[in-house]
Write a protein that binds this DNA or RNA. Structure first.
Lengths: 241, 241
DNA sequence: TGCTTTTTAAATGTCAGACTTTTAAATGTC
DNA sequence: GACATTTAAAAGTCTGACATTTAAAAAGCA
């Protein structure tokens, strides 16, 4: 079933890999209980702390969950989209910051992907999602809003737009592009004039989504991308000299 | 800097979270060395095994790497796109299988996102990427190819297409949609006739990419999606009764 | 002096054994 | 039969030790 060569190094990593492979391959079914730590230690011929380190590695990836008590143990975990969401956002955020991805590159990816969702969202959005979009636009119109809150609302708006496509895979993948951009967006200072323009484009997009006009929504996103990028360009130009 | 309430439970998870937050917040810079396990144990007032479990959790997410020896220790790790790639594919694959995502849903997401890349790929693809696409088409034309290898080549073709957009963020996000579909695609038996049609569409798309015609490439992907979905529908219809 | 070799110390990796806490099931009592 | 008590299994945690790796310091030598 699972083997473990004693050569080379890092037993806990090897054990974690062996168990992970079994899960990915489907040998271990969802909610299935793994052997107890003591049994695993015996099976792999290592100590319990080593097994525990391996299990913690798997728990960190949400591949297993552990439960204390009499009928406790480690169980293969069902990875839900909601759970995976925040992890994906964190990783994407770190990828952007650690690899010095430019604002343009991140922005281009974000809007390219978001345009892909627009036609589907126009087709399927629920009244609730439409109301969320309108609500966020209203919130963005409050002049007292800080730049950070403005960005936050912007993310909520776009998230509703994407969720409108009613495709969990799209929502999940898009999360990494939209939410991960927030730190970059937070570097921008939004003037009253630029906020006004963004809000107007948001309204335009929402109108298109409301009237089931996917093409118009896509065009609106085009304009919004252009506006965002020119805004960023001017902000960064002002700052560097 | 980092705190740790002794209430509730799971110390290693709390410690891992504290350190992760420090990394995400930028308090811990890339390649910076964390305190030694003994120092961390002293700081958090826990034992060394508990600290180690926390560090293994972080290592599982590639947030840190550990090094043995005199100047060794745990270091904040630079997460590269290449590294994150395979993790993202694994997670996406598990998300699809564990949540019983339908072929249609996954397929729709995949092609929607891929169409987003097509115009950029038409603009920026290198001769190398074009050659890769042509090469994969050639490979797909060999009748002796197994269905699994055909799918593998299909993934390679689409990956080259996406990479042509020269945007690492797009390539990364798309990986989760394209490669994660492979297990679903492997359930399909490709007749000679259906292979022929897919190859023809691949050629059509490649031609469009070669002539920098983003619109034609997008239309080609539209047709390919329709073809793939109808193929899947008929295969699954044949199988269920 | 300058180079090579040896030693040393610091750090992670691993182990063994014990104790604590949680939890559910078995048992006992009314 | 319903409720309280006991019990056992399992994860969570701690202590202390030893093994292994690695780079830098120390020693030896030409």
């Amino acid at each position: 079933m699972k083997i473990d060569p004693n050569s080379s190094a890092n037993l806990s990593a090897q054990i974690a890999k062996a168990i992970r492979d079994s899960i990915v391959a489907g040998d271990l079914i969802i909610d299935q209980r793994l052997p107890s730590e003591a049994e695993l230690a015996d099976y792999f011929q290592v100590s319990r702390p080593t097994v525990r380190e391996a299990l913690k590695r798997l728990a960190a990836k949400s591949l297993i969950r552990t439960q204390r008590g009499a009928t406790g143990g480690a169980f293969v975990n069902r990875i839900s989209f909601e759970e995976a969401y925040s992890d994906h956002v964190t990783t994407s955020t770190l990828l952007l910051s650690m690899n010095a991805v430019s604002f343009d590159t991140a922005c281009e990816a974000r809007y390219a992907l978001e345009r892909a969702c627009a036609p589907l969202s126009a087709l399927r959005r629920t009244p609730d999602q439409l109301a969320t979009m309108r609500g966020e636009i209203l919130r963005q119109s409050q002049p007292s809003l800080t730049d950070e809150s403005f960005c936050e609302s912007d993310v909520a708006f776009h998230r509703a737009l994407v969720d409108g496509a009613a495709n969990p895979v799209l929502s999940y993948q898009l999360a990494g592009s939209i939410e991960a951009m927030q730190p970059l967006m937070n570097m921008i200072t939004f003037s009253a004039r630029s906020r006004e323009k963004i809000i107007s484009l948001h309204s335009q997009i929402t109108d298109a989504i409301e009237t089931r006009d996917g093409t118009a929504a896509t065009l609106g996103l085009n304009d919004l991308e252009a506006e965002t990028r020119s805004l960023a360009t001017s902000v960064f130009a002002d700052r560097s000299p």
